[in-house]
């Protein structure tokens, strides 16, 4: 056994008397101490699924009810769908919000395969925003690009410009 057992004096061999090289042998008395043990109570542990078992503990409370334990922890129940951390987003509003305002880690959420057709329409309606990196890299060039686009547009579509102005 690897654990160190507390050697009890009455079982210890006497090396001290052998080691001491004196003219006469000395053997002092060893006090046999009574082992001290903390007081323990029997406690009933009730797990979150209702199963229970008894154990000995220093805690004086007779019944311990746990809310989070092995029965409802996802690490121990990897196949349980109930415990999976899935957001309830049936209408797709949270996802739409993320698509519009999501930045960084939030923008990279993978598009789920099981999408409704309505969701897809919504996705197409909302313009895909530039990611954060694009904003940084294209900071200086952007006004020029817009200018170029507006100059090309001016010749072709005047009515659109008028309509815009009217809206404003």
């Amino acid at each position: 056994m690897a654990t160190k057992t507390p050697l009890r004096p009455s079982l210890q061999r006497e090396y001290s008397s052998i080691l001491i090289q004196s003219s006469h042998q000395i053997r002092r008395a060893t006090l046999l101490r009574r082992p001290k043990r903390p007081y323990t109570f029997t406690q009933l542990i009730t797990l979150s699924d209702g199963s229970s078992f008894l154990h000995r503990t220093t805690s004086p409370i007779p019944v311990y009810r746990s809310t989070k334990d092995i029965k409802n922890s996802p690490l121990w129940n990897p196949s349980s769908k109930k415990l999976l951390n899935v957001e309830e987003d049936e209408a797709g509003r949270l996802r739409a919000f993320r698509a519009r305002f999501g930045r960084g880690w939030d923008a990279e959420t993978p598009v789920e395969a099981e999408e409704t057709s309505e969701d897809r329409k919504e996705e197409s309606k909302t313009e895909p925003e530039d990611s954060l990196m694009d904003l940084i890299t294209g900071y200086g060039q952007k006004p020029q690009k817009i200018k170029a686009a507006s100059s090309s547009k001016k010749g072709t579509a005047d009515g659109a410009g008028k309509a815009k102005g009217g809206k404003k």
Binding site: L47, H55, K68, D69, I70, S73, L75, W76
Partner: peptide, 14 residues
């Protein structure tokens, strides 16, 4: 044994 089962059942999941 009591300590290990206590660890596994109650403490570590939390």
């Amino acid at each position: 044994f009591h300590f290990l089962s206590k660890c596994v059942d109650v403490v570590l999941p939390r």
